[in-house]
Amino acid sequence: MMLDPLTDLHALFARIVDCESVSGQEEALAGLVESALGGLPHLETVRIGNNVVARTRLGRPDRVLVAGHLDTVPVADNLPSVREVREDGEYLVGRGSCDMKGGVAVALALAAQLERPAKDVTWVFYDCEEIAARYNGLGRIASERPDLLDADLAILMEPTDGVVEGGCQGTMRFTLTVPGAAAHSARSWTGHNAIHDLAPILEILRRWQDRDPLVEVDGLTYHEGLNATMVSAGLAGNVIPPEATIQINYRYAPDKSAAQAQEAMRRLFDGWEMEVLDLSSPARPGLDRPLAQSFVARVGTEPRPKYGWTDVARFSELGTPALNFGPGDPLCAHKADECCRLASLDECRDALGGWLSGESA
């Protein structure tokens, strides 16, 4: 199978979706992307593992980086893709159609078509976004060729249904462990029930829900969340549990750093043994930058905050303002009937391509 980036966008999209690329198995799709762009004279193309970077070298005053990940979550009897006609238009249904091969298709088509854009553009197609952060292809590029990620603005083609979503929340997962003492449940008073001692933690979480969860950052309002997500305790139905562990997930606004978020949680749960399982920095919206403002104006819709964590945080850590923008309703991501409205691809291509070409709204 070959990919022709100059063919009909919807046909290109279907071929990309039908090339299975579960995380860690992106080699075939990365090869197709490299072959599609490698022979184009207006692009310098570099491959690092299963990551493909193609960029113009026109000497423009601004450089924009457009990125999309090639991998998907595991297939669940939802390949090959199928087209469906619904009341609001035609859809492609299949694994990765929403997250985020629609964005990959748009980026691949524009990379081939825009021979002399008004801005220099770096197109990044990377692997292993859907699994542990240490495998993420952007991290490998940053380690081996950081110059390839230099840009004045990064646009991550996450599914946003064609609306600019600024920044992203940070996330912290941690456990609190409560000690007890095992005993036979018939003689429970000879032990100490660790599960019962989770009550004060649960009360703190309950009271936290009463606070105002809305935080405004650079004109966008983020909704924070602090929730117990897992509880582990108990040895048997007739044994007083000697230990109980509760896992908590804190989704925090980009008004604070990862270190500040961690310190806030340690103060809130002072007195309990805490183990931090993962801690990811947020990203501020960056919509105060003129380049980002001009893109928002070209898109023509009111920007929204990004709920959840995305790789815009990686660009933020590199000092590059970044935003999320791509085809597909994010609520469809990872579902068994994952799908993308085909017109959404056209809308994103026209907005992004027009802006990169220097067209006004």
Results as ranks from 00 to 15, higher is better:
residue 4 D to P: 04
residue 7 T to M: 13
residue 10 H to S: 09
residue 10 H to G: 04
residue 15 R to K: 14
residue 17 V to K: 01
residue 27 E to T: 08
residue 32 L to V: 10
residue 35 S to E: 09
residue 40 L to Q: 06
residue 40 L to R: 11
residue 41 P to C: 08
residue 44 E to I: 02
residue 44 E to N: 09
residue 49 G to H: 06
residue 49 G to I: 08
residue 57 R to L: 08
residue 66 V to M: 12
residue 72 T to L: 06
residue 74 P to K: 01
residue 74 P to C: 03
residue 76 A to H: 09
residue 77 D to A: 15
residue 80 P to A: 08
residue 80 P to C: 08
residue 86 R to F: 06
residue 88 D to I: 12
residue 100 M to W: 05
residue 114 L to G: 06
residue 115 E to W: 04
residue 115 E to F: 04
residue 118 A to V: 00
residue 118 A to K: 03
residue 120 D to A: 02
residue 127 D to N: 11
residue 136 N to H: 13
residue 143 S to C: 11
residue 143 S to I: 08
residue 143 S to N: 12
residue 150 D to P: 03
residue 162 G to C: 09
residue 166 G to S: 07
residue 166 G to C: 10
residue 170 G to F: 12
residue 176 L to S: 01
residue 179 P to S: 01
residue 181 A to W: 10
residue 187 R to K: 07
residue 188 S to M: 13
residue 201 I to W: 01
residue 215 V to T: 11
residue 218 D to W: 02
residue 220 L to E: 04
residue 226 L to V: 05
residue 235 L to Q: 15
residue 235 L to G: 13
residue 249 N to I: 09
residue 257 S to F: 07
residue 263 E to L: 12
residue 264 A to V: 09
residue 268 L to A: 06
residue 272 W to G: 04
residue 274 M to G: 07
residue 275 E to N: 13
residue 275 E to G: 11
residue 278 D to S: 10
residue 292 A to W: 00
residue 304 R to D: 00
residue 317 E to W: 05
residue 318 L to H: 11
residue 318 L to R: 15
residue 320 T to M: 04
residue 324 N to M: 12
residue 325 F to P: 01
residue 329 D to A: 14
residue 332 C to L: 14
residue 336 A to D: 13
residue 340 C to R: 09
residue 342 L to F: 08
residue 344 S to N: 06
residue 350 D to M: 10
residue 350 D to G: 07
residue 350 D to V: 05
residue 354 G to R: 03
residue 356 L to Q: 05
residue 359 E to Q: 14
residue 360 S to A: 14
residue 361 A to G: 15
